[in-house]
Write a protein that binds this DNA or RNA. Structure first.
Length: 286
DNA sequence: ACCCAGGTGTAGG
DNA sequence: CCTACACATGGG
C-alpha cells in the first residue's frame, strides 16, 4: 500500500538510523525496513521524496497508514520545527545538512524500556537487547519470509525472572532489576504512561519518570521527547554535551533547552546525529 | 591494557 | 547550584 508523505522533507532511512528507535531492521538485499508497531509487523520503504510503500501483518488495514503518519510525524509540522530551532547559522546549517531527519513518535512503553537499557550502552547493544526480549516474550509475527516479534507487555516483564532478564539485556547487570521494577510500576498503576502522554508539561512528566529506578534526567527526557510528545524535552548525553560545547554552549541542559524553545528536542536530535556521525572521521585534529 | 558506549546515584564542596 | 567518583561490560 502506498503512503504519501506531507509535502515536507522526509528521509526514511536517515530517520530510522539516527538512533531514536532500536528495532527497525534493514533487509540487506532490498533495503526494505521491518519493524513492529502496536502489535503489527510493518515492512516499509521509500519509493520517492514524497512517497512510502508499506505492507503489514496482521493486515492489511487502512488504519496502519494513519498510524504511520503519527509515528513519523507526517503532519506538516516539520518545516515549522526546523524553522523554530534555526536560531543561529550553526543550527540552520544542521537542519540543511540532515534534511529529512524526522523526530519520531514511538510507543511509550517500548521507548521507556529501550532507554532504561541505554545507560552506558551502545545503540547496537540496545537493539540486540530489545530483540532478545521480544523473541523471548513477544508474539510471533510473519510477513513473507520475515519473522519478527511483538514487544513484551508490562505484564510479561513484571513477571519475568530477574536473572533471565539480565542474561538477555546486554550492559550493566542492574538493568534487569530496573526493567522489572518499571514493568511492575506500570502494572500496579503507579506509573501511568497514558496520563503522561496527555500531560502538556514537560517538566512534570520528566519529574514523574525520574521516580523510576535507573531513570535520571537524560532517560526521562528521551522518553518524554521520543514517545510522549514533549518536543521541548532536551536529553543531554555525552555526544550532545560535546556537541553543545563545540557550538559555544556551556553544556548545561537548561540553557540549551531554553535557547531552542518549543522544539528543543529536535535540535538536540540533530546535534546528536551530527556529532555521532562526524566524530569518527576526524583523525587529524588537535 | 586502554577507551568508549544515547547514565544514574551518591557524596561532598 | 556545581563537580567528582563508583558502578560494570563487551568490543575496538
Amino acid at each position: 500500500m502506498k503512503l504519501e508523505t506531507d509535502a515536507q522533507p522526509f528521509n526514511l532511512n536517515l530517520t530510522l538510523d539516527a538512533g531514536q528507535a532500536f528495532r527497525w531492521q534493514k533487509d540487506k538485499k532490498t533495503g526494505c525496513r521491518s519493524g513492529v508497531i502496536r502489535g503489527q509487523l510493518i515492512h516499509i520503504s521509500q519509493t520517492s521524496d514524497k512517497q512510502l510503500e508499506f505492507k503489514c501483518a496482521p493486515g492489511p488495514d487502512n488504519a496502519v497508514a494513519e498510524m504511520l503518519r503519527s509515528y513519523f510525524r507526517l503532519d506538516g509540522s516539520y518545516n515549522e520545527m526546523r524553522h523554530s530551532i534555526s536560531r543561529d547559522s550553526q543550527m540552520t546549517g544542521l537542519t540543511k545538512q540532515h534534511k529529512g531527519l524526522r523526530l519520531m513518535r514511538q510507543e511509550p512503553w517500548e521507548c521507556l524500556i529501550s532507554y532504561i537499557c541505554s545507560a552506558t550502552n551502545s545503540v547496537q547493544r540496545i537493539s540486540e537487547s530489545m530483540e532478545n526480549l521480544s523473541e523471548k516474550w513477544g508474539k510471533e509475527l510473519r510477513l513473507g519470509d520475515c519473522i519478527r516479534h511483538t514487544f513484551p507487555t508490562p505484564t510479561d516483564l513484571a513477571a519475568a525472572d530477574e536473572d533471565e532478564l539480565n542474561a538477555l539485556i546486554k550492559g550493566i547487570p542492574t538493568l534487569g532489576f530496573r526493567v522489572k521494577s518499571a514493568a511492575q510500576m506500570v502494572c500496579d498503576g503507579s506509573l501511568n504512561l497514558t496520563a503522561l502522554a496527555e500531560n502538556p508539561s514537560c517538566s512534570e512528566v520528566v519529574k514523574e519518570l525520574k521516580n523510576l529506578n535507573g531513570v535520571g534526567d537524560k532517560i526521562a527526557n528521551c522518553v518524554a521527547l521520543f514517545s510522549l510528545d514533549k518536543t521541548d524535552a532536551f536529553p543531554v548525553d555525552r555526544h550532545i554535551a560535546r556537541g553543545l560545547i563545540q557550538m559555544g554552549f556551556s553544556g548545561s541542559q537548561k540553557q540549551a533547552q531554553d535557547y531552542f524553545g518549543k522544539y528543543a528536542g529536535y535540535a538536540g536530535q540533530l546535534i546528536f546525529h551530527h556529532t555521532r556521525t562526524t566524530h569518527h572521521t576526524r583523525t587529524n585534529e588537535s
